[in-house]
Amino acid sequence: MTRIRYFAAAEEAAGRAEEHRSEGTLGELRAALASEYPGLGGILPRCAVLVDGERRDDDAPLAGVTTVDVLPPFAGG
């Protein structure tokens, strides 16, 4: 199982700071999250999604992955 961590607006939209999931690829994970959390689905395309600290394509396998971070765009100075 992969640990999914949500930050800022993504955490608010998902209603949780983290969870464990078992989707096979990053694309499958994105689709499942958008379906289960409609509010997250609205911002997910603009989020940086890091797989063990690196940006990856949707076909990236999640087997053996420890952590996926969902980071919405941040503003600030």
Rank of each mutant, 00 (worst) to 15 (best):
D52Y: 05
G15V: 03
A48I: 14
P61Q: 09
L26M: 09
E54S: 10
L40W: 01
M1T: 06
R5D: 02
L50W: 11
G27A: 15
Y37C: 13
L71E: 13
R21A: 03
L50P: 03
D52V: 03
P61R: 04
T66M: 08
G15R: 08
P61I: 04
T66E: 15
I43Q: 08
A31Q: 15
Y6T: 02
A17K: 14
A60Y: 15
M1V: 08
P72M: 05
A10S: 10
A60W: 15
S35K: 15
Y6C: 07
R46G: 10
D57R: 14
T66A: 15
G41Q: 06
E18V: 01
I43Y: 08
L40E: 04
T67M: 08
A60D: 11
G15C: 05
G15F: 06
Y37P: 10
S35W: 07
T25E: 12
V70Y: 00
P72Y: 07
P45H: 05
Y6A: 07
L50G: 14
H20F: 09
V70N: 01
D57L: 12
A14E: 07
P73L: 03
T2N: 11
D59N: 08
A32Q: 13
A31H: 10
V65A: 00
G77T: 13
E54L: 11
E11H: 02
C47W: 06
E36C: 12
A32I: 03
D69R: 07
A8L: 14
